[in-house]
Amino acid sequence: MKTPRQRPNGFTLMELLIVISIMLILMLMAIPNFNKMKASANENSAINSLQAIYKAEIQYQTTYPANGFACSLQALGGDPKQGNPTPTSAQLLQGDLPAGVKAGYTFNIVNCTKVTVNNTDQITSFQVTAVPQAVGKTGYRGFCIDEYSEIKADPQGGTNCTASIQ
Rank of each mutant, 00 (worst) to 15 (best):
G136H: 13
I145H: 11
I22T: 11
M27E: 07
I58V: 14
Y148T: 10
C112N: 11
M27Y: 10
P155G: 05
G136Q: 10
Y60S: 00
V117S: 06
G158R: 00
P80G: 00
P32E: 08
S89A: 12
P4D: 04
S49Q: 09
F143G: 01
K114C: 13
F107R: 03
N118S: 06
Q94C: 01
M29F: 12
M23D: 04
L73P: 06
M14F: 14
A41G: 11
A41M: 14
Y60H: 02
L93A: 05
R7P: 01
F143K: 04
V110D: 15
L73V: 06
P8N: 09
A103L: 05
V128F: 09
A41K: 10
K2T: 15
P80Q: 05
T86H: 11
Q156R: 13
A52H: 08
I31H: 08
G78E: 03
P98S: 04
F34R: 09
S45P: 02
V117D: 06
Q122R: 14
V115D: 06
V131W: 11
A90D: 04
Y64N: 04
S40V: 02
P98W: 08
G104T: 03
N44R: 14
I145P: 08
A153Q: 08
N33L: 10
Q59G: 00
A103E: 15
D96C: 07
L16G: 06
A130R: 00
V131S: 03
L93W: 11
A46M: 04
T106F: 13
S45C: 04
I109R: 05
G100R: 03
D154Y: 12
T124G: 02
N33T: 06
I20R: 02
Q156G: 07
I165N: 13
N44Y: 13
P65G: 03
P98D: 07
L93T: 05
I109N: 07
M29Q: 11
A41Y: 14
M37A: 15
S45F: 12
T88E: 15
G139F: 04
K137S: 10
T159P: 01
L26K: 01
A70G: 09
E150W: 13
P32C: 06
P132I: 14
N9L: 13
A103K: 07
N35H: 13
Q91H: 10
Q91T: 06
L76Y: 07
Q61H: 13
G136F: 14
I47E: 11
L97E: 03
D121E: 12
G68N: 12
V128Q: 05
Q74K: 14
Q74M: 13
C144F: 09
M14R: 09
E150P: 00
D96R: 08
G136W: 14
T124L: 02
D121V: 01
K38A: 13
M37P: 02
L24M: 15
F69Y: 15
D79Y: 04
F69R: 01
T3F: 15
A103V: 06
F11C: 08
Y148F: 13
I165K: 11
K81T: 11
K137W: 03
G95M: 09
L26N: 05
I18R: 08
G142N: 00
A70N: 07
Y105E: 12
G100I: 03
I31N: 04
N9C: 06
I151F: 11
I151S: 07
N42G: 01
V131N: 06
A153G: 03
G68K: 10
Q82Y: 03
V19C: 06
A90V: 02
F107P: 02
A41N: 14
M27N: 07
A103N: 15
